[in-house]
């Protein structure tokens, strides 16, 4: 069973007379419970691929099938729903809403559920459980600026999990963190993967990439190599 499939995915940007071919035909399968690291230097098409995987953008050609939906054919509202229901985002700069508390930040995706249900005690309890799961049960009333980088990223992880998504999309999740905190965050992601969550990780750090089950290396808008390129044991 696939969580996500990419079939000959292309993305071109038209800048006047120039055509920038950011993705030139990418195919990949992400089975359920997968943990993959996408690597590559800047300009390799890594970010473009991430935007497509995150349903923030539509491909120029090819197909992106996420949980049975052909994302390329959906309109803006449907893309919003896909992002809300099927994708959990974790960003490099955490991207918490500054005026909200930890608990409120975790709740944000709940506001945009397609059924627009009111947030009841069930949902609140779920948020509290998640906060505890990422180790922030004591800091529910804190604002993002009162937290360390690692703590903020934990809030983001809890937020990514609140709607029980099909895939978790992490974009350089440890890029702004020191190595100790990096290890903590990666331990948390690894633990989530062991529970059966599908995680797609974008990074250019081998220390992070090696924690994934396998890696995809992008180059010039194409998949350059994939497989168990670096493993946990290797240097």
């Amino acid at each position: 069973m696939h969580a996500a499939r990419l079939i000959d995915l292309t993305k071109f940007y038209f800048l006047g007379d120039n055509i920038v071919r950011a993705l030139r035909g990418v195919s990949a399968d992400f089975p359920m419970g997968d943990f993959v690291a996408i690597m590559g230097s800047s300009g390799s098409g890594k970010s473009t691929l991430l935007n497509l995987l995150g349903a923030l953008d539509r491909p120029t050609g090819g197909q992106y099938i996420l949980a049975g939906y052909d994302v390329g054919t959906l309109n803006d509202d449907d893309l919003s729903e896909i992002r809300n229901r099927l994708i959990g985002f974790i960003f490099q700069s955490y991207n918490l809403i500054p005026q909200y508390t930890v608990l409120e930040n975790i709740q944000v995706p709940l506001h945009y559920r397609s059924n627009r249900r009111t947030i009841g005690s069930t949902e609140i309890n779920r948020c509290l459980d998640l906060a505890e799961r990422v180790g922030l049960a004591e800091r529910l009333d804190h604002r993002p600026f009162q937290l360390s980088g690692g703590q903020q990223q934990r809030v983001a992880i809890a937020r990514a999990l609140v709607n029980d998504p099909e895939i978790i999309l992490a974009d350089e999740p440890t890029g702004n963190l020191d190595s100790v905190t990096e290890k903590e965050i990666m331990d948390l992601l690894t633990a989530l993967n062991r529970e059966g969550r599908t995680i797609i990780l974008v990074t250019h750090e081998t220390s992070v990439a090696r924690r994934a089950r396998h890696q995809i290396v992008m180059k010039d808008g194409l998949i350059h190599s994939e497989g168990m390129l670096i493993t946990d044991g290797e240097k």
């Binding site: 803006d76 509202d77 919003s80 729903e81 809300n84 229901r85 809403i97 937020r159 709607n163």
Partner: peptide, 16 residues
């Protein structure tokens, strides 16, 4: 702008 981007990424529609 950033907040708007975050909300959109987390599933807010234009009308939200």
């Amino acid at each position: 702008t950033r907040e708007i981007g975050i909300r959109r990424a987390l599933g807010a529609r234009q009308r939200d």
